[in-house]
């Protein structure tokens, strides 16, 4: 890829106008190229400046109160507590690899997953790191369905460990979403799409655990799809 093409890819990535497949390609470039990362940083600041040229408008009356209420609601919602465990030692010095999917119920053909990833209706949830572990985890789901895909970029683990996805409804309702097996994107099926789920990632013994045994490394909230 020549310099001009690289710049175009990075600029359109920063503009957030690429398909999921194209985004993954650019992210692979970014993962290994400091030059691409610097170019992205430049475009991001430029586009931030461009956005700030929007005509000024006052936020609607009561918006701050509504946000205050949303924030206050978080206080009352207890995050499920998972037992702590020393889980970072095996991965501290690891290099990044790309892990692209995890299966919940049934593996789907790759073309079906590509369709889901590129569906403009798809709901995208970025799981938030809870500690020092680097990486990214994204859950993509279709509204009015029970279908989704988990896409993760995480450091490799020791051979006897695997990342495991959890679908958490409450402290007493935590279901396994499956373990990250390989680099192929895999379809996810939600048990009940009418529910909101807290999505969590932990490290577990190879093959997975019936309940989480480690602290969550990433957490995110998936709204009800129906």
């Amino acid at each position: 890829m020549d310099e001009q093409e690289l710049e175009e890819r990075i600029a359109t990535y920063a503009l957030n106008i690429l398909s999921e497949t194209e985004r993954a390609e650019v992210e692979a470039i970014l993962a290994r190229s400091a030059e691409a990362q610097e170019l992205l940083r430049r475009y991001e600041t430029l586009l931030g400046g461009l956005a700030a040229l929007a005509p000024h408008r006052s936020a609607p009356e009561g918006a701050a109160e509504r946000f205050r209420a949303r924030l206050a609601a978080e206080r009352t919602r207890k995050r499920p507590k998972l037992p702590l465990r020393l889980i970072f030692s095996a991965i501290a010095a690891a290099l990044f690899i790309l892990i692209t999917g995890v299966l919940l119920m049934a593996r789907a053909p790759e073309d079906e997953i590509a369709i889901l990833l590129n569906d403009p209706r798809a709901v995208r949830v970025e799981l938030v790191p809870q500690g020092a572990l680097q990486g990214s985890v994204r859950f993509i789901a279709l509204p009015n369905s029970d279908q989704g895909v988990l896409v993760a970029e995480l450091p490799p683990l020791a051979a006897d460990r695997q990342y495991q996805l959890w679908l958490i409804v409450s402290e007493s309702d935590i279901r396994s979403g499956g373990v990250l097996e390989d680099t192929r994107p895999l379809r996810v099926r939600l048990p009940d799409p009418r529910l909101a789920y807290t999505l969590g990632i932990t490290i577990e013994p190879r093959g997975g655990s019936p309940q989480p045994t480690g602290a969550p490394l990433f957490l995110g909230t998936l709204p009800p799809l129906r």
Partner: peptide, 28 residues
């Protein structure tokens, strides 16, 4: 935690975040 002050001003970062969320909503 994703905001990194060494990569640019907060207002710029926030503007980009808002624009991207708006674009995602537009698509949804």
């Amino acid at each position: 935690d994703q905001f990194d002050a060494t990569r640019g001003a907060f207002a710029t970062w926030l503007a980009r975040l808002a624009r991207n969320i708006a674009i995602d909503r537009l698509r949804q």
